[in-house]
Design a protein around this nucleic acid. Structure first.
Lengths: 334, 334
DNA sequence: GACAAAACTGGAAGCGCTTCCATTTTGTCC
DNA sequence: GGACAAAATGGAAGCGCTTCCAGTTTTGTC
């Protein structure tokens, strides 16, 4: 592999000059630029990115830490991030924390040790305090799907409360009065806020939140199914099940079918996130859109702007969920 | 950030000795090892991975090139690869080729320029010839989901023909005689082989393959739906739809419902791949399991063994698909 | 206790590039 | 044509580590 040294020899200029054309510096004459380019071509020169990193103290790699690499959510996210980064010649180093605190910390250290220029984080197990502390370190950090007030310009999040509110408001508008709610684990910010929005909509319609028609799930499919079992056992009637995410909604649909109930005739269902399989379900799931792609893209742009000083881009931190009406909700006629 | 130099000063030993304990070399006395470790601790020393890479000509990063980062398949794959790699202190650099030839080539160059120690490839657009040529280069390459005879020890693949055969055999055993087939794009090896397996099973049962009940899709959901429309228009009766992957099967299920047909009563459906949402569908999809997790893990192990000379692990290149019986197929009583 | 072999340690040269500083060249204006 | 600033170039010192080589110490053996 040819090095910059050979290029400089062949082109008859100094190392510095070669380096300058490599980095598109100003103050290089057109003439030497041409000579250098020609030499590079002739030698099939390819810059050694490791050497550049060492000398410049820039690795051009961005670490991405997520809970899991699989699942409908993270794939979309990664996809957007990678696309944005690659356009700028940067690359993504990925790692998973598996929702285990120590493992997530390890993941962060791993990425820092890898000399990532910045880190994008989308996880649940680490505390706000830890992340605040982390963000004081020398490696810039941005946080997805979470609002930490102390570092809010580095957070990209949706208004979960609003989403919860809109979902429930819509259901109420369809004539439903008896709503069951299957939440995510309430120690998670998003689960909590979505529930709050739900309660606000209820309140606004003078409906009261019924503890008996509430089940705390874990955001996974099975807990939707189990939740429905649990709710049905109370013998309290309900005509709609509000689920805090699509996975649980899909489980809830299964649960309802186990009990020979028709969706949406016997019970309407709404989800949250609008993951891509939401419209593979039957009936297609009405849900709240979570603009994960834009958010991920935005986080990448934040890094391009703040870490690599790319030309000004507009950065938006707060995103708005939107209702996606499909087939899983029907008007209530009772 | 402390450097190896400061460690050596504090420990009162030479640079080389520090480096040696860092790399777990033999021929370091317990005493100096302790001194060095203590110094490292005291200084909070963290090795600079970039400098190590430059000096050792090893980046400890493995490039992963896939068609898309999202979708049910790639997430699982990445997840397994990352887990295996991280255990060994290596990391994954990911990039997507979006099934566009030039873009996939760019992706490869991108990863090579990043000094990846090896590359894992899972794409369709690049020709066998290109990949054979690539594998002669200095960056080791492994290929997932594809068998290229010339470099077969670097390929990890399943027996698609067998999978196609087993799927159809099972359906025939359930009493079905009139089978429709929705294939993937036939320029893709896997699509082609699955179809061949289908034909073999047909043949074995003395059923003939009916061109009219064949539709070539593109492995995406919509083409399953469109495929059913097309097949139904022929007015040729069929009692089961064999789909070359789960996404198309899910589309096919939608298509059948559009025509008010019940699954599996009016038409059975079988998929292929066993992606995780296959059992979110209703009815739950009977399909062929594609052991993507093991295959991905195995490819990572191959690299650990062949590139990093880790202790011997058994590497298996060819994997076997297995039938997963769920609810989308019923016995045919006609 | 002598001697060879093995184990251990330090010095120093690089890995391929960036970047600061000093020097040389070019251009502009009177 | 000369003075001066600005632009272009080259030299050289690192970036933080690995690794080869040679020298020194320890160990084991008879």
């Amino acid at each position: 592999m040819a090095t910059i040294y050979e290029v400089s020899a062949l082109a008859g200029v100094s190392l510095s000059s070669v380096s300058r054309v490599l980095n598109d510096h100003e103050h290089v004459s057109e003439k030497t630029k041409q000579k250098v380019m020609a030499a590079m071509n002739e030698l099939g020169y390819r810059p050694n990115s490791v050497a550049r990193s060492l000398a410049s103290n820039r690795s051009n790699s961005i670490g991405v830490l997520v809970s899991e690499l699989h699942g409908p959510f993270y794939g979309e996210m990664l996809s957007s991030i990678e696309m944005e980064l690659r356009k700028a010649g940067k690359h993504a180093v990925v790692t998973a924390g598996h929702s285990v605190e120590q493992s997530e910390k390890d993941g962060i250290n791993f990425l820092i040790d890898r000399n990532c220029d910045a880190i994008i984080i989308l996880i649940d197990s680490l505390s706000d305090e830890f992340l605040i502390e982390l963000s004081k370190g020398s490696t810039p950090v941005v946080i997805l799907n979470r609002l930490i007030p102390e570092i809010k310009d580095k957070c990209f999040y949706i208004d979960n409360e609003l989403g919860g509110y809109l979902a429930t408001k819509y259901i109420i508008e369809q004539g439903h009065k008896d709503l069951a709610y299957i939440s995510g684990p309430l120690f998670k910010q998003d689960a909590n806020e979505r529930l709050n929005g739900h309660k606000r909509a209820l309140n606004e319609a003078n409906l009261k939140f019924d503890e008996e028609l509430f089940y705390q799930g874990d955001f996974l499919t099975t807990s939707g199914r189990v939740g429905i079992d649990h709710l049905l056992k109370t013998n309290k009637p309900f005509t709609a099940a509000v689920c805090a995410n699509d996975e649980m909604a899909s489980g809830a649909m299964k649960g309802l079918r186990d009990h020979k109930m028709l969706i949406p005739q016997d019970c309407s269902v709404i989800g949250f996130d609008n993951v891509y399989f939401a419209n593979y379900l039957h009936p297609e799931l009405t849900t709240m859109n979570y603009p994960i792609n834009e958010m991920a893209k935005m986080s990448a742009q934040w890094i391009l702007k703040n870490v690599y000083k790319h030309t000004e881009v507009f950065v938006n931190n707060k995103f708005t969920p939107e209702l996606i009406v499909r087939e899983s909700i029907t008007k209530n006629k009772t």
